[in-house]
Simulated scan of single mutants.
Amino acid sequence: MITTTLDRLRGLRLGALADAYLAQQHDPAVQGLSFDERFGMLVDAEHLFRDNRALTRRVKEARLRVPQACLQDLETGPRRGLDRSVVRQLATCRWVGEHHNVLITGATGVGKTYLACALAQQACRQGYRVIYRRLPRLFEELTLAHADGSYTTLLARLARVDVLVLDDWGLSALTDLRRHDLLEVLDDRDGTRSTVITSQLPREQWHDYLGDPTLADAILDRVIHRAHALALTGPSRRKEAGTRTASAEA
């Protein structure tokens, strides 16, 4: 009878519940529990399995540069220009629900990408869909989309995702086409979705980077309003890691 029940549970795609049920049959500790308690444990096992599977799928689809990034592992304090209370607030992902942006600036190596990926990872954990792209790579995708006729489809995909991470803002030169593409991407998301941007350029230099004054005004108007601005400081974490490794090897 147990075998038949297990087969039926798996046939209903309740594999985690089936495994938990089988484990209960061999666990004397649960034999004294009531039916409701044991059934609740089975439901919890299936629910946890599905939550973890969905999270794994969202993180895989996001293609984060640092998929293991975690807000709990961030170094905060004056040395990094990152306040712990701000991190706690962002960890709630209220900014995603309210369609706010996050702008992360700082010198190379200070942890901008890690912070962006940690925020994205947290959003995935709370059920939001995320896409990560280095901005130079996104420009390449948009150029190819123009050529093969998938431009509208790509824009629609970027517009639907809850959190779009644009890493390395300001590293690649802009053409008129790229400026217009960037405006299209951000305009579709304005007030309806959240965007995370990382850049080595201080925000005060973004207007000059964008070049065309009219398009720069339009792009920044869709970015800097309703945004949380984080300016990271401190030495390069890559250099610090390299120094520690060299010291350990010595």
Rank of each mutant, 00 (worst) to 15 (best):
N52E: 14
T192Q: 15
L210Q: 02
E141I: 06
Y114L: 02
D19M: 04
I104D: 08
R222L: 09
Q25R: 14
Y132N: 04
A23N: 03
A218P: 11
K112Y: 06
R94S: 14
S236P: 10
R179K: 10
R53G: 01
L182Q: 04
L154H: 00
V66I: 09
A54H: 12
Q200G: 03
E240R: 12
S199C: 09
H228Y: 13
K239S: 10
L220V: 07
L9G: 02
R50L: 15
L55V: 04
G15D: 15
G97E: 15
D176P: 05
D188M: 08
P78C: 00
D167I: 02
L33Y: 08
L186Y: 09
A16E: 11
A218Y: 13
C117H: 09
L182F: 13
A120V: 13
C70S: 14
G32W: 02
L119N: 03
T198K: 06
L154P: 01
A159D: 00
R50S: 13
V130Y: 04
P235C: 08
G109H: 07
Q121K: 10
D27V: 04
L166Q: 01
E141N: 11
E184K: 10
R65L: 06
A216N: 10
E141H: 12
W95H: 07
A116V: 05
L174P: 01
D168H: 04
Q24R: 04
L90N: 12
G81F: 08
